[in-house]
Design a protein around this nucleic acid. Structure first.
Length: 528
DNA sequence: ATAGGGTTAG
């Protein structure tokens, strides 16, 4: 609506513009009147459905824009206003907008009721604010299956698989009648945790309930693919006797490629016209497997079908070439992209970074930061830049970038950024500075707890630099950590003690491993 | 109000 207003910035200059300025203000006032008239003519419920239809059409910005105007025009809104608006907030990832809407809901008394609260649970979890999500869930008086499902998928989305299973168990205890939404999320949880037994049990439940088999079947296929059981995935596909569902076929094809079953992949690919989404997910599998040959085949298919104008596909190609060490090819794809997004730039920087060319990575990063690139670096960009610096031992540049991230771009470093930065400082041999950083982090963190990954980074820095005192402190923190009683913990700590020559402690770690039954059989070659 | 494809970056 405001797009048709003249730009006030043009009014600068001579006094002859005065008349024009008056005209401009008059236009503006007319415009506002017009806007109010328009709003008054339509009642709240039709505006609410307009909000929903913007959201369904994939235009969260339009939803928020209309909402702001509605809020200005009339102070009272209904809960049907807020649910689509929360959905838009969830999509847009401006963390504070959702909170502001929540505050407004409380002010208007519109946050009560299961449906409103479920929308809040969903919004907070999609924003990564799990704590708030759980808080809202606890406040729901009449919890129904949908609010439970929203909580479950929230844990899943935020990488908390174990907690998601805990929610499922709680639903069982509370005798909640589960739905196909529940099953779908639980199957996905089993896939992310790679737990075969539970996944099979859920498969049985899917068969018993017998509803929505195409969607649930697709989940089952991707579950079996992720645990490496392609024969089971294939069985599900055949038993459903639905051979043309694009989503299901894409799931099966990318599973085949991930498990290096190229024969079946090609066979299945011939059952549908190639589509961008399928090629992109296949490319991701090629990147993981460093399968340059099949990656090149996909490049050819994309070329023949005219898909090279798709920037997402090009990003996938760059990533594949980068991971396969083909930096020249990655660069060629990058140069040909007409509208480079932040992902394109980040993929290119990372391609240089993983190939050890920190200088080229930084050069590309600086080019990206110039205004004419039209994009801004985000937190993933900084992560790949920092990891390129760590990899190539570019200490000063790494420090500069870490500072720039906060000061110039206002981005908050996450655990991964700190891990990378500690790695950089470790390359400089500076455990003093690492320790100052750790102390500063412990001050701001509640109860002086730091994420496990940070202590791991500190410990390996201490191993590298033979810092016995600080290393032993980090080792203690790591061993105290709950839920990390895995072989990798003892191996990590044991490697530190080996580095500083404390062989009695190395032995103690080995004893710990034995006591907990974590010792693996020694490796041996497989020929007879 | 919740659910299917490791769509692209670590």
């Amino acid at each position: 609506m405001f797009a048709c207003l003249p730009r006030l910035g043009n009014a600068s200059g001579k006094s002859t513009n005065l008349l024009w300025r008056v005209e401009l203000v008059r236009n503006f006032v007319n415009h506002v009147h017009h806007m109010f008239d328009e709003l008054l003519q339509r009642d709240l419920s039709s505006l609410n459905s307009q909000l929903s239809s913007y959201l369904r059409g994939g235009n969260p910005n339009e939803t928020l824009g209309l909402f702001v105007k509605m809020h200005q025009a009339s102070p009272i809104l209904s809960s049907h206003t807020f649910t689509p608006v929360l959905g838009a907030c969830a999509l847009l990832s401006y963390p504070e907008t959702g909170r502001q809407v929540h505050a407004l809901m409380i002010k208007q008394g519109a946050e009560t009721g299961t449906i409103s609260k479920t929308a809040l649970i969903d919004m907070y979890s999609k924003q990564g604010h799990l704590v708030d999500s759980v808080k809202v869930f606890k406040s729901v008086e009449d919890k129904d299956v949908v609010s439970w499902n929203a909580l479950l998928s929230g844990f899943l989305r935020n990488g908390k698989g174990k907690e998601a299973l805990g929610v499922f168990a709680a639903m069982y205890r509370d005798k909640v009648a589960i739905s196909e939404f529940t099953l779908s999320s639980v199957v996905k949880t089993c896939a992310s945790l790679k737990i075969l037994q539970q996944g099979k049990q859920v498969h049985a439940m899917v068969v018993v309930t017998g509803r929505d088999l195409v969607v649930l079947g697709t989940s089952m296929i991707s579950f079996y693919s992720s645990v490496g059981l392609m024969s089971e995935a294939m069985k599900v596909y055949i038993s459903l006797n639905v051979h043309t569902d694009e989503v299901m076929l894409n799931s099966l094809i990318s599973g085949c490629i991930r498990n290096r079953n190229y024969k079946d992949a090609l066979l299945l690919m011939s059952r549908q016209r190639p589509n961008v989404r399928m090629l992109v997910s296949s490319l991701a599998s090629c990147s993981d497997n460093s399968d340059l040959w099949i990656g090149k085949q996909i490049h050819c298919v994309a070329l023949r079908n005219g898909f090279l104008s798709d920037s997402k596909l090009c990003n996938g190609l760059m990533d594949m070439y980068g991971k396969c060490g083909q930096i020249v090819q990655a660069r060629a794809v990058f140069r040909a992209i007409t509208s480079k997004t932040v992902v394109s730039w980040t993929s290119m920087i990372d391609a240089y970074g993983v190939n050890g060319d920190g200088v080229k990575a930084l050069e590309t990063f600086r080019e990206m930061c110039e205004e004419r690139s039209g994009v801004l670096p985000n937190s993933v960009t900084f992560l790949v830049v920092l990891s390129a610096c760590a990899h190539a031992g570019l200490v000063e540049e790494g420090k500069e970038c870490f500072g720039m991230m906060k000061e110039k771009y206002g981005l908050v470093p996450g655990t991964e950024h700190y891990v990378c930065f500690i790695d950089i400082l470790s390359k400089a041999g500076d455990t003093e500075e690492i320790w100052r950083l750790v102390e500063r982090l412990m001050m701001v963190n509640n109860e002086g707890n730091l994420p496990y990954a940070i202590w791991v980074a500190v410990l390996s820095a201490c191993s590298l630099n033979m810092d016995v005192t600080r290393g032993e402190y980090a080792a203690r923190r790591i061993l105290e950590e709950k839920g990390h009683e895995k072989a990798s913990v003892y191996v990590l700590v044991s490697n530190f003690y080996a580095a500083i020559g404390k062989w009695d402690m190395v032995e103690e770690m080995r004893e710990n491993l034995k006591k907990k039954g974590l010792v693996k059989a020694a490796g041996h070659s497989s020929f007879m």
